[in-house]
Design a protein around this nucleic acid. Structure first.
Lengths: 188, 188
DNA sequence: CAAACATGTTTGTTATCCTGAACGATTTGC
DNA sequence: GCAAATCGTTCAGGATAACAAACATGTTTG
């Protein structure tokens, strides 16, 4: 036995739902993808933890990308309003990120309220992450480095860049820095 | 050898970038997740096609969901800083919109700093195109109506909705309201 | 310089994914 | 009514992912 049995069950149910939605049987999907029906059965019943490659081949037959598959939420209730204290918070090393929405799943973008403590520094980030990213400084000052460009921004100043560029955020000055930013996942 | 070698290379590269972004070594991530460093090495170098479960355990250590991971795409180019006074401003009836970026062209989203004077009201707005819109209240209070839902938000509170729904923003309380928001542009 | 540490890589061994084939249970056709 | 077809499931096997330990190469430290 292995650890992630519960997660495998969920993954299987998700696949089953998507397969049935497209009107295919396990064998039909097997034929379309070259993956044996037994594999599909085991995955759907949560008895197997598939490899990414196998899952990809199966999803190809459903014309679904891995990104879409994992973003898919059968019963996703999309909230509209979020109280300040309910925003999920991600903290690491003097940087606090408050995230609008519980997850990127099904969202065109993620909005963050970022708080940088005195001296906080994201470190030199060799490579970027999401697709595009921008924001406005609310209070305090921050030094932002994007590629070979560097600038110190204060309240009201803004930035917008392709976040696949290497970038670094470093708080400067006597008070903490607050930024509201947004970043987008690529459609892929 | 197996078929999806190229895909595994990309997957590995992606993981490597994300790991390095968070400043962890292979061994550091291994320790944080319980997954051996050798496994991480093999995955990153594209020599292995990991199971979903293993990948999930690894990504847990990076605080990244599978959904976010597969939505991630490396590449690069384009960046800009904007001084507060250079932000293009659109004003109409007590509402001031400061727009990050001079043009929407080629941008995945538009970021706005919205200032609502006392009593300002957008009236009912409905976008024809498919778009999403969200934001965080910085100061003051505002009543937001989306479809049949209505709520008054204060500093730190947030919202996110499909902007095809009719929506309305109305300042309330004794002081002007400032919001930083983001919305997706029309898909041309 | 040498010892100690850190990094990513490679090597066996074990666990398990993946497969083709066989199995019961329904449904369809004549 | 009895094949024939279709459905999802289960079962041994070869293939390979996952693991622990050793390896190679810097980098830091005394």
């Amino acid at each position: 036995m292995f650890a992630g049995m519960e997660e495998d069950k969920q993954l299987g149910l998700r696949l089953k739902l998507l397969r049935e939605r497209s009107g295919l049987s396990q064998r039909g999907l097997a034929k379309a993808t070259g993956v044996p029906n037994s594999t599909i059965s085991l995955i759907e019943s949560g008895k197997m933890n598939p490899s990414v490659g196998a899952l990809r081949r199966i999803l190809d037959g459903l014309a679904i990308s891995l990104s879409e598959f994992f973003a898919f939420q059968p019963e996703a209730e999309k909230d509209v309003f979020y109280a300040a204290e309910d925003l999920p918070e991600i903290g690491k090393g003097g940087v606090s990120l408050k995230q609008v929405g519980t997850s990127l799943a099904g969202r065109a973008m993620m909005i963050l309220k970022e708080t940088y403590d005195i001296g906080a520094d994201t470190g030199r980030v060799k490579y970027g992450h999401e697709a595009e990213e921008g924001g406005i400084v609310i209070e305090g000052r921050i030094e932002i480095t994007v590629g070979d460009r560097r600038k110190i921004l204060g309240p009201g100043d803004a930035y917008y860049f392709d976040s696949r560029n290497p970038h670094r955020f470093r708080q400067v000055g006597p008070r903490k820095c607050v930024i509201v930013s947004a970043c987008t996942p690529p459609t892929f």
